[in-house]
Design a protein around this nucleic acid. Sequence first.
RNA 1: GGUCCCAUGGUCUAAUGGCUAUGACGCUCGACUGUCUCUCGGGAGAUGGGGGUUCGAUUCCCCCUGGGACCGCCA
Length: 588
Amino acid sequence: MKRTNYAGLIDEQYIDQTVTVQGWVQKRRNFGGLIFIDLRDREGLVQLTFSEKFADALAVADEARNEFVLEATGVVRRRGAGQENANIKSGLIEIEVAQATILAESKTPPFYIEDGVNAGEELKLQYRYLDLRRPEMQRNLRLRSKIMASSLKFMDEHDFINIETPILAKSTPEGARDYLVPSRVHPGSFYALPQSPQIFKQLLMGAGFDRYFQIARAFRDEDLRGDRQPEFTQMDLETSFMTQDDIQALVNDWVKAIMKDVVDVDLDITQIPTLTYDEAMRRFGTDKPDLRIAYELQDVSEVVADSEFGVFSGAIANGGQVKTIAVPGGADAYSRKDIDKFTDYVKRYGAKGLAWLKVADDALTGPIAKFFTADKQAALIEATKAVNGDLLLFAADKADVVNATLDYLRRETAKNLQLIDDNQWAFAWIIDWPLFEYSEEDDRWISAHHPFTMPNVADLHYLEDGEDPHQAHAQSYDLVLNGFELGSGSIRIHRMDIQEKMLKALGFTKEQAHEAFGFLLEGMEYGFPPMGGIALGLDRLAMLLAGQSNIREVIAFPKNSKATEPMTEAPTPVEAKQLDDLGLATQD
RNA sequence: GGUCCCAUGGUCUAAUGGCUAUGACGCUCGACUGUCUCUCGGGAGAUGGGGGUUCGAUUCCCCCUGGGACCGCCA
């Protein structure tokens, strides 16, 4: 049975009908013998009018304050000429209240419940149930719900089977820090909350389910960011017998369906570009490029290798490179002081400085222009396709420093020069990821994605002794949207011999490998099908579709940046008895 | 683990080495029958904690606490 009396949905169709509505007092305007109350519920506002015609109701309205919960019964009237309010859906009508009841009183809330409220993040999280009353938060969470509904429908229509995997799981090496859960029955042993359902979904493929889908919670005990929470939700799928191309095509159809269902956008999936990881790094300096920004990184190492400017020639002589971005209109938009701020900021990426030149009258100006002859200047302008008014920002260093620096500057300048079209949905696939990356901390090669990622067949030999594992690329694919990593997928290893080689390359002894993943390796001996899958981050997708810049805005009860929850104050100390039961009692 | 920034009524914020610490919203009392940023009149309400410099600290310095951003980290 659907509810039909939402305050925010009462409109002209209800004129002359008697209705009863319930909701929260948004605003009371008191004229003595005449009181208006804007009543709010999840659908919006409706104006209640109270007058001496119904003295009892008027007395109730006189008592009411903001955020009181009210029930009101009355006849819906068309508003008089000039009294309409175009700002609300129900603005053509009002309810002439004959009978009203205060269902609950409210203390004065710590902040006013309205969109754009300027209260501190901590305060809003501490009173999250009040913050969630804001129309924007109501919209965000309903949008999130729609993404899930759309996805479940899509997956059901494509023969996916929804299967839940354990939350109390096994701790595995590799990857992020685990959240651990002590076992009462086995003192000293721990469950781990899953960082992803990865291994379980591979086992489900081994079990023959063929197409699995789950909206799954995942947990990682790492520091937070604006787009990262310790617990988050993945829309997770795995398939058997599908190629990488098949899976990418399926995901394209899936996101097309979501975009249509949720934000009514017709996504042209033929326009989604596929870039290799190497190309993305070369052109954008990042593995998750925001393709809404037109300008790219230009490698000018060859042009400036023999330049008089020691910072450039020196960086190249030391095995580094020189790259630049040409910021459109940046020459006028940025003062020397602004650029100094950038210089300061990019030091956190390891950049030692920031060289810059402005393009004017088809020549270069700025403090370092004197190091470049007219020919060199022309060559630089040619190489960067810069035009008059552009600002050239240079990074000269090792490749990773150059890339990180210019990736930041590209995004930052585009943002504050408003060169990004907010209505554009720039999806992109990033493929051919390196299989390994080097961990300074562990002094060994680790998985770029995870240890079950299938190498490119031609690269299998790199897993052998004596080969350089850095060369190996993977059958992996990330989906990027507007500069955010939306999802990460790969074809998986389904044969034990390859999986063992992979674990060996990662530094596992055979014993360690079987200790950690024995159940999976053993399973592979019983006929596991070729398989691959992907997981899309629900929180990030919801954030982007809702037009928010922080993931907290699409999660009902998020953690703050210290991974605590200001409302419940979790995590909290527990009773000594609980620790005792778990065999965790401390000595003192 | 590291770097940087911030802390003034319920909320957001202004200002100052010294006089009654500014304003808006909210709250409260009163008046008001067409408001929807109601209007008008009155009122209550603040410098996070500790230490230092100083005749005097909300202001300057240090520590703590809390918050934010970023780097590392995030298979």
